[in-house]
Design a protein around this nucleic acid. Structure first.
Length: 266
DNA sequence: AATGGGACCTGCGCGC
DNA sequence: TGCGCGCAGGTCCCAT
């Protein structure tokens, strides 16, 4: 579900709502989502700590706790953080001293909660590529130039660049007019430059809208994000391209659906 | 090195 | 109404 804009939205809302708050209880309704530590230890080591800071790395959220430990949250496909929660769909509930509850919901149970001494030790995080906002177009161009792989799966590769997922990869390629099967190294310098710009613009616009709510994703408040109204191709199979009216197509690349305009994207 | 397929999971919408 | 299938904002692992 959530890509950089969605996780960033949640991070900003958490920053407003739960910094300094004390967790007095951790209720685990489905232990499957707790990784690398027993559920009992997970609860007991979080209980009675307060939240000092919220960090985002790519699509991962990290809560810095007053004990010095870190709660690492990967929402994967259907993870939600909702505050205050409603318990119903909750897999794990964090109960605060004022009785309000932060719920981790996750219908597909693919999400992960970890408690770590240092989040920097996580293999996935160590291997994470740079975020689009951390590099410039020259660096991005050089990164692409070295890769013969298809551009769309490459954008999904978190080791290559962090934060882009299936939805935004399709959107940025449409906006750059680049066909998703093109080898990365085949992009002209003009195309690389445009792609880099569209990645940053798209992510920024999506953050401004509070992310894209297609199915499961909601903001911390439970409200939907509004960016789906701006999607150009994602989830628009057979609908007319906003530029040329040609029906948007869907194909499969690396097992993932890819939406594109067969006329606009070369 | 680059692909493809399957696995992890649940739940929705669709066509029959 | 009921059932089976395809599909899902992610990532890992294995085979070719």
């Amino acid at each position: 579900m959530p890509e950089l804009p969605e996780v960033e939205t949640i991070k900003r809302e958490l920053n407003k709502d739960i910094i300094g708050k004390k967790i007095v209880d951790v209720v685990i309704k489905n232990p499957k989502v707790i990784k690398q530590i027993t559920p009992a230890k997970f609860s007991s080591q979080i209980k009675n700590s307060s939240i000092k800071q919220i960090i985002r790395k790519g699509k991962i959220l990290i809560f810095g706790l007053s004990t010095g430990k870190f709660l690492v949250i990967h929402l994967r496909m259907t993870g939600q953080l909702v505050f205050p929660g409603n318990k119903e769909k909750s897999r794990v509930s964090f109960v605060f001293s004022n009785k309000k509850i932060l719920d981790f919901n996750d219908s597909r149970l693919l999400g992960e909660l970890k408690l770590m001494d240092d989040w920097r030790n996580l293999k996935f995080i160590k291997e994470l590529g740079p975020e689009p906002f951390e590099i410039n177009e020259t660096v991005f161009g050089k990164m692409l130039g070295a890769k013969k792989t298809k551009i769309k799966p490459l954008l999904l590769d978190q080791k290559f660049i962090a934060g882009i997922g299936n939805l935004y990869a399709a959107e940025v390629l449409f906006r750059s007019r680049v066909y998703p099967e093109r080898p990365a190294s085949s992009l002209s310098s003009k195309e690389k430059k445009l792609l880099f710009k569209e990645i940053k613009d798209t992510l920024r616009e999506a953050i401004k809208c509070g992310g894209s709510s297609i199915d499961q994703y909601v903001r911390l408040s439970g409200k939907r994000g509004n960016y789906a109204a701006h999607h150009k191709v994602y989830n628009r199979k057979d609908k007319p391209c906003f530029v040329c009216k040609t029906p948007v197509k869907r194909m499969v690349q690396g097992g993932r659906g890819t939406y594109f305009c067969p006329k606009c994207q070369k």
